[in-house]
Design a protein around this nucleic acid. Structure first.
Lengths: 122, 122
DNA sequence: TCCTTGATTCGACAGTTATCGATATGGATG
DNA sequence: CATCCATATCGATAACTGTCGAATCAAGGA
């Protein structure tokens, strides 16, 4: 229902469906879209946030769980979470007092399969 | 029947070897290192360059093959190639008049496996 | 209703980045 | 050696990014 563009892809053959960039040149349009996602991953704080969220019990974490491990201020964490959300890498929802974040696996899978290299390459 | 911890581990070998960020929180040091590589991928021109190089016949391409498809100037292409090289994603070598670039598959594979998500996640 | 706590937004500032034209370098070739 | 071609480097500039403290919003509880 709420799936905008990507047809829910099964995780197991995600690698098979989406041509890795090693096989054929990336289109200009796709490159812009993918670059936006990689840019969200291009900051150490955001990478650690994503990994904290993903590895948290239940697959989700509230912001209160995420501010502790970092040396940066809470508004900065909030900013980074917004970047991750706008890149389509995480989802979020307010439940009562707290706001929870979770990873969107299809997005990670898309990037992962894109980077897969053929075994034989130099 | 050597299921380790996760009941629904889809891919057996690729996912098992290199701890994806989904399994455990990323260390601060590793995050800095990985963020540097993702930053190199966070520009549309660089993504297309990488994909052009990787998909080029023989697995390598000279700069002269790479300036044509873009609207940006030659110094700009040279700059982007330098960024990719310093991130450890490509190698390069001068052979006679031309300079050749090729992708370093181990670097791509490292990023790819990092982003692999478990099949069951929401 | 008023306070407290959790989270986002705002405004500002310093540092970084993408891009260009001009210039330099390095090798082949006449 | 002089010249041409392919790349790289330099210096400048406009745009973007990460960070902070202050202010704001949202939900509960006295």
């Amino acid at each position: 229902m709420s799936n905008l563009e990507l047809p829910v892809l099964g995780q197991d053959d995600a690698a098979a469906c989406c041509s890795p960039m090693v096989r054929e040149p990336l289109g200009e349009e796709a490159a812009v879209d993918l670059a936006r996602m990689f840019k969200a991953l291009s900051d150490p704080v955001r990478l650690r946030l994503l990994s904290l969220i993903a590895s948290h019990e239940g697959g989700e974490a509230c912001v209160c769980d995420l501010t502790g491990p970092f040396d940066v201020s809470q508004p900065t964490i909030s900013h980074h979470l917004k970047v991750l959300r706008e890149a389509g890498l995480v989802g979020s929802e307010r439940r009562g007092t707290w706001v929870y974040y979770w990873v969107l696996p299809a997005a990670l899978a898309r990037l992962s399969s894109l980077l897969e290299a053929p075994a034989g390459a130099r």
